[in-house]
Each structure stands twice: as structure tokens, then as C-alpha cells.
Write a protein that binds this DNA or RNA. Structure first.
Lengths: 184, 184
DNA sequence: CAACTGTTTCGATGTTTATCTAATTAGACT
DNA sequence: AGTCTAATTAGATAAACATCGAAACAGTTG
């Protein structure tokens, strides 16, 4: 979150865009002229700024009016930079999924249980699937071995990995599917 | 300046490093272990953070103790994010060379004069040289034409462009040299 | 519906930057 | 001097990102 905000700010073109927006609303064309970049490029930057909540969009006809979201800006600037806030980054700035996985791991790195809720099951299966290399074939024995390193219930996890389209099987051979295929 | 500060902050590894430093001083080794990166990588990040004035360095024996520069952090966080401060970025955050060139241009984009000092001449010649495409040959007439679009004194500028190894000539044909060759 | 305008998406290209290993520097300790 | 340790620099590789032209899209206007 904070990282996204900072990354959005940390580029000259985007700072200049924000500079223009700080005075008044602008259309994409105006902005492109103002910073001497092509519309597609500006559009791309605006998308990032919007993702980060730094600008607002108001649409009128086929003109898009972008404005500065002053509130988000000052709110974040206040919160981000306190010392103890910063200290939280040491381990933090890890996303929600990682947090879920971490909570399911014993100190030795084994899974405590099979997660009941789908919300937790997905990130954990994803984590498990990542133990497999893409573009390589695994015999079932090796799949079992890899799973058992994390949890004794190899049957359930193997079945679920396939159900989520993270692993695929054919003729007793398994392989990892590309992340884009995964049912999340 | 501000851009450097933001760029320094806008990376997960560096945020995590700052997170560790927010609690107490650390050596490079400690930091490397703390963020699970190799020492050289950490060293590289620390250099950027130091450039941006975000961390302090205290050397004891051959151990380097890095600490958080809380003052710089809060000072910048306060100044950076005010609306009118931001507005200044619209034109600013342009480097010194661009500023020089801009001051030498009339509103129509022509050069006001031939710059007397070398310090100003270089960026202006560089700017002029960039009007030529690399990897293409220009007859002298076209060179003159391109220069005259910016300044009437084609002879002087042509000579200087060659002197700075931005253009080269052979048998009355000119071409632009790669930027790495330029005498700056 | 056809032509037009402003914007966004796509695909390709080039640049920047993160990271690593290996080599080098600098201080401390025999 | 030689060795040990901590850190940095160099060089190579890989990932992330900025930018552009072309194409697609959405709203407007005849």
C-alpha cells in the first residue's frame, strides 16, 4: 500500500503530472502537452497514480478530467514517516496472502493444518505449488515427497492442487501450470 | 532532490532496511541477514539511502554502523506534500542542463545567442546535436538548414558541433556521433 | 450509421535498476 | 610482513519499467 504510493510518486514524469494537477484539473491531452510526452504514456502514468489513489477522475463526454487527490496525499504523508510507523516495515510490507501463509506455518516451516476456508486455502495452495518448478515433470512419488515435506496429508493437498489448476496430471506424471491458469 | 528522496524510499528492500534502522543502528551484515539479501546488495541500497540523506554512517574499526536519519525524514515528509510545493514540480525537477537550454531559447524556440562560457555551450550544443538523427547522413545543405532553424550563425555552430565530436564530417557528408563520443 | 475526437490498451523496444558472484579495499591482530 | 574480517566496487545477468506507434474503444455529432 505504502510502497505503491511511494512508487507512484518516485518518477519524474509523474511528479510533473502531479505538479500540473496541483493547480487545476487537466485532460489527458493537456497533460501530455504539459510534460512533453505522448498520450499513451501519460495515460499509463495516470493509471498508476489512480491505482495509488493520488488522483481523481471525472469523465465528461469523451474527455477525462484528472485532478489531484489532496486528501490522500496529506493523509499518507503524515502517517508514513513516523519512526515507529517505519519500523513496522521491517517485516511488514508483506501482503495479506503471505501473512496467511505465515500464520499456517510451524517454526519448522510445516503446515499446521489444512485450511478450512477457501480464503485461506488459496494462498496456501499457491505457496505450496510454488515449491514445484515450472516446465518440469514430476512422477507421483516426487510430488508426494514434496508435499509431505510440508504436511502429512499428501492425498488431500495433491487433489486440491489439481483442483485449483496449479498442478496438472497425465499418465501419472505431474507438472506445474502457469500462474495465469490457477483458479484463485 | 525530492525525486532522489522518493526514489530512495520507493523500493521494498530499502523500506525494509529503513524499518530495521528505525529501531537501532545496524551493521551491514546484520542488515543483510535481516532482509535476506547479500551484503553487496545491501551495500548498494545503503549507498542510495545515504545519497538521499536518509541514513547516517558511523564507522568503528571495519564495521560500519548505519542509522536512521530521522530529521531528514520528517523534514522532507513535511515539505514535500503540500499542494503548492507540489505545484512547483510542474516545471521544476528538470536538470541543470535543461534549465540552461531553456534560458537560451526564445519563445519561438530559437537560440538567443552563441553561449560564451563553455559551461553553457556544452548543453546547448548537445541539445542542438540531438536535432539530428543518429545513423543517418546529412549533406552540408541540410545541416545548415537544421542549424538555421535555431540560429543564423550556421558556420560557428557547425564548427563547434564537430569540435565537440557531436557531428562528424567526411567528403562533405555529416552524421551524428553516439553520445558516448561527445566531448562534454 | 459514418466520421470524428479523446482516451485507453496492446505490443515492441530500449533503459534503468536489483541482484548476484568475484575481486578489491581497508582496518585490526598477530 | 601476513592473515582475518567487514565492507565496498566491478562486472554480468535478469527483472522491472518508461516510452512510443498502432490499434481498439467510447462518446459525440452529423
Amino acid at each position: 500500500m505504502v510502497l505503491q504510493f511511494l512508487k507512484a510518486l518516485a518518477h519524474e514524469s509523474r511528479l510533473r503530472l502531479l505538479g500540473l494537477l496541483a493547480t487545476r484539473e487537466h485532460s489527458v491531452q493537456e497533460l501530455a502537452a504539459g510534460v512533453a510526452l505522448k498520450e499513451p504514456t501519460v495515460s499509463h502514468h495516470l493509471a498508476m497514480l489512480r491505482e495509488a489513489g493520488l488522483v481523481t477522475l471525472r469523465q465528461d463526454g469523451n474527455t477525462h478530467w484528472y485532478g489531484l487527490n489532496q486528501k490522500a496525499l496529506s493523509r499518507l504523508s503524515r502517517t508514513v514517516f513516523a519512526r515507529d510507523q517505519l519500523a513496522a516495515f521491517a517485516g511488514a510490507e508483506i501482503n495479506e496472502d503471505d501473512r496467511v501463509v505465515r500464520n499456517y506455518l510451524t517454526p519448522e516451516g510445516r503446515l499446521k493444518a489444512f485450511p478450512a476456508t477457501l480464503k485461506k486455502r488459496r494462498p496456501i495452495l499457491a505457496w505450496l505449488a510454488k515449491q514445484f518448478e515450472e516446465g518440469r515433470n514430476y512422477p507421483e512419488s516426487e510430488v508426494n515427497e514434496l508435499i509431505e515435506r510440508r504436511h502429512h496429508d499428501r492425498e488431500t493437498f495433491r487433489r486440491e492442487l489439481i483442483g485449483h489448476r496449479m498442478l496438472a496430471r497425465k499418465n501419472g506424471v505431474y507438472w506445474r501450470l502457469p500462474e495465469s491458469e490457477w483458479v484463485m
